[in-house]
């Protein structure tokens, strides 16, 4: 996993509630066996009309969001299917941070495992950001080290993150490698309890 310390980047705003992973990456693109190359299919059914032309009404097709690396979203972002193709697509498209009032549990985990930072801010703070970024170029800085987000004018907010993920992201550690260091504990557990599935 790549590490995350601090970044300044362009913001895209998506003021919709309950955006599910079927929208983030539609099922027809789940048949690939690689982790890469999903960005072109991100929000496919919303981004493109049925004739394949970009839909100008869709938030991410607004010129001001070009090159955005921070996504401001609304309640319950990433609900539904556990497909990790959703964070792979967001990351491949260029997003490193997603800010929302709430996230679905599995999606949030999937983001963290890929070095995408999901930040929970209050509904009030998120609506301020949605307003600032709507239809115009807007930049923010996200510091994981200081657990702060801020812009050049008047917005600043602190956020919380589990100490485990704070360390994992800052250092870009490989989680499996860490767990394998506990091999002895796993063996002891297996010796004590394991009845076996079959």
């Amino acid at each position: 996993m790549s590490s995350f310390k601090e970044m300044t980047g362009k913001v895209a705003a998506m003021d919709r509630t309950n955006v599910d992973t079927d929208q983030i990456i539609p099922k027809q693109f789940l048949k690939r066996i690689e982790k890469t190359g999903f960005g072109q299919y991100l929000f496919y059914d919303w981004r493109f009309k049925s004739n394949g032309e970009p839909d100008e009404k869709f938030e991410l097709n607004h010129p001001a969001t070009k090159g955005a690396s921070i996504l401001i979203a609304n309640e319950n972002f990433g609900c539904g299917s556990s497909r990790e193709h959703a964070p792979w697509a967001l990351q491949d498209y260029g997003f490193r941070v997603i800010i929302a009032p709430s996230f679905a549990d599995i999606f949030k985990q999937n983001c963290l495992k890929n070095g995408i930072l999901p930040i929970v801010l209050s509904a009030n703070q998120v609506s301020q950001l949605l307003e600032k970024a709507a239809g115009q170029e807007y930049e923010m800085t996200v510091s994981l080290e200081q657990k702060r987000v801020y812009d050049e004018t008047d917005f600043r907010a602190e956020f919380e993150i589990h100490p485990y993920w704070y360390q994992m992201l800052l250092n870009g550690w490989d989680e499996i490698e860490l767990t394998l260091q506990l091999e002895q504990n796993i063996q002891e557990y297996e010796g004590k309890f394991l009845s076996g599935a079959r």
């Binding site: 982790k35 556990s82 497909r83 990790e84 964070p87 599995i106 985990q109 999937n110 495992k113 890929n114 989680e175 499996i176 767990t179």
Partner: peptide
Amino acid sequence: FGIGTSEVEH
């Protein structure tokens, strides 16, 4: 419970 592919690997 459901998990993502990174967790499947783990």
